[in-house]
């Protein structure tokens, strides 16, 4: 392995996903490097969610290879990928609505040391899991709502809860599908701070439409159109790119490609 700072944790090599005749992703390459935020941009239907689903193991690629720290993980399920250190949040909030915030995150923490055979111990007495859950909730900015039933939280707060759950699984690679969607500007700003705090020790893939947030945290931006990578590079390069402007950023006409 190379030095810790620019270590490529998750590498997708020409991954392709076909749904029947439709090619949702074609030869997509993504490198996620520790300490960097990689943003995936693109109009609706560009294939961003398909891409993140292949990286997280929710969807097997039709072609191509995914490496985690140099090892081929293309065949691993979502659960197995979570266990090696790849965590994700979902575009549509995906929590345990009847559980409290604490229990949502405690379950996430418990996943790192499951001990299923200890059927006579009490989950609520596993201090390490509770402590970790509380710390992650605090980190995600939900500290005041620890004991709330998560289903009654606002949409933005549920997004924060998702982040807390990913944190509690010790994920080294975080795949975040529109974590700012539906958040007010205050909440967004807070979440951007959280992302910046998390960045140095982790590799983050971010799918996001909020351009202010994107340019505030991105180290690399990959623009996808029609299932293919249009351009990939540092934010300055993407901003200056004529192709990107035509396809996505500037032109209203082609926004809904």
């Amino acid at each position: 392995m190379s030095d810790n700072h620019n270590e490529a944790l998750l590498v997708a090599k020409k991954i392709t996903r076909r749904f029947g005749g439709l090619v949702a992703n074609q030869d997509v390459c993504v490198d996620l490097i520790r300490g960097k935020v990689h943003v995936l941009l693109g109009p609706n239907g560009a294939g961003k969610s398909t891409c993140i689903n292949m990286l997280s193991g929710d969807l097997p690629p039709s072609d191509g290879q995914i490496l985690f720290m140099g090892k081929d993980i293309t065949g691993l399920t979502a659960a197995q990928r979570s266990l090696v250190g790849i965590g994700r949040s979902y575009q549509r909030t995906n929590i345990f609505p009847k559980f409290t915030v604490l229990e949502n995150v405690r379950l996430a923490a418990q996943s790192r040391n499951q001990q299923p055979w200890r059927i006579f111990s009490k989950a609520q007495e596993q201090k390490w899991a509770l402590d970790k859950a509380r710390a992650c909730i605090e980190e995600a900015g939900l500290g005041k709502k620890v004991d709330w039933v998560s289903g009654v939280l606002s949409h933005g707060e549920q997004r924060q809860l998702e982040i807390a759950m990913v944190l509690a699984t010790d994920a080294q690679v975080m795949l975040l599908d529109e974590p700012l969607a539906g958040m007010g500007s205050d909440e967004s700003a807070k979440m951007v701070e959280v992302l910046k705090r998390l960045k140095p020790t982790r590799a983050i893939l971010l799918v996001e439409h909020d351009m202010d947030a994107v340019f505030a945290v991105a180290d690399t931006i990959t623009v996808m159109v029609n299932g293919q990578v249009l351009e990939s590079g540092p934010p300055a390069q993407i901003k200056a790119s004529v192709a990107v402007q035509q396809a996505y950023l500037g032109s209203e006409d082609s926004f809904h490609v």
Binding site: A79, G87, R88, N94, F96, L107
Partner: peptide, 15 residues
């Protein structure tokens, strides 16, 4: 947790 949301349990690393 499985009853509530099995998919989420899997994505948190529960087989």
């Amino acid at each position: 947790g499985i009853k509530s949301n099995e998919h989420r349990m899997q994505s948190m690393g529960y087989l």
